[in-house]
Design a protein around this nucleic acid. Structure first.
Lengths: 148, 148
DNA sequence: TATTGTTATACTCTATAACTATA
DNA sequence: TATAGTTATAGAGTATAACAATA
């Protein structure tokens, strides 16, 4: 395989979480490098990846999805809006809320982001059995449940 | 279970990576809150968790483990050193390198961090089958391989 | 010349608190 | 009063580049 030791081996001491964080760092770093032409920060990439399905979201919904506080989300949206990737509109029915919608340019960028995500994912998962992927999803869901 | 939709469901569009990042955010946030008494930032928690086994590391080794550039690692180590959690010593054999060693106080803090990691991990994994955990590890290893 | 680590700079992310507008 | 979002402030994470010490 490789000369470097990855150490995702068994153990009761929290290795499951350490491995989780290493994988997140490594993948986000690679994606940022792959998408360097778009000049996006990791948080901006994350936001576009979540908005890529075209469904409008409120600020708080997006913040929950990307794991950012409202104050951080506002900053991310400021930059994406200034660069023409999205617009902020009032939400009909509750005018306290802001509805975030991608522009045509934003949809193109988001599609590129999604392709990079999917590409890395496909490369990684090609070497893994489907039941392992199912186990991976089960553990992530359990971690999400335990973390509240 | 819960009213909130977590959506780790199937899909070819990069959901594997989005779910990974959400889980990382959620767990690190909970751990930071659980360890609030130690007054540590997420990066400092991560550094201590990696150093907890007692094995000395160089700056670059630790940086690779926590996913930080040398410049970031230096800042994290500055704060941990100032607070008495570790010392920097010259590495015998290559005096360009710096060997990081936990102090007694640092070992105590690191042990607390490890316990929090292990506790959250145990709570989450209690609801998951062993073969799912094995699949989880396999996918993380594959993601790590694909991300280089 | 190359490598290890630090420093300098600028920008982004984060938490907290205060604020506006709406409910 | 409560909620959604923004703004202000300060501290922490990040990349880039320049630098000193060592190899």
């Amino acid at each position: 395989m490789n000369t470097e030791t990855v150490d995702t081996g068994p153990g009761p001491g929290g290795e499951t979480l350490i491995a989780l964080q290493r994988a997140t760092h490594a993948t986000l770093h690679v994606l940022t490098a792959e998408l360097a032409a778009l000049k996006l920060t990791p948080s901006e990439i994350n936001a576009l990846a979540n908005l890529a399905d075209g469904r409008p979201r409120t600020v708080s919904e997006l913040g929950a999805a990307i794991g950012s506080k409202p104050t951080t989300t506002t900053g991310v949206l400021d930059r994406l809006e200034k660069r023409g990737h999205l617009i902020r509109a009032l939400k009909p029915g509750d005018r306290r809320s802001v509805r975030i919608e991608l522009t045509a340019q934003g949809r193109a960028a988001a599609a590129t982001v999604r392709e990079a995500f999917a590409g890395l994912e496909a490369r990684a998962l090609a070497a893994v059995r489907p039941e392992d992927v199912a186990g991976y999803r089960a553990v992530l869901a359990a971690l999400g449940e335990a973390a509240r």
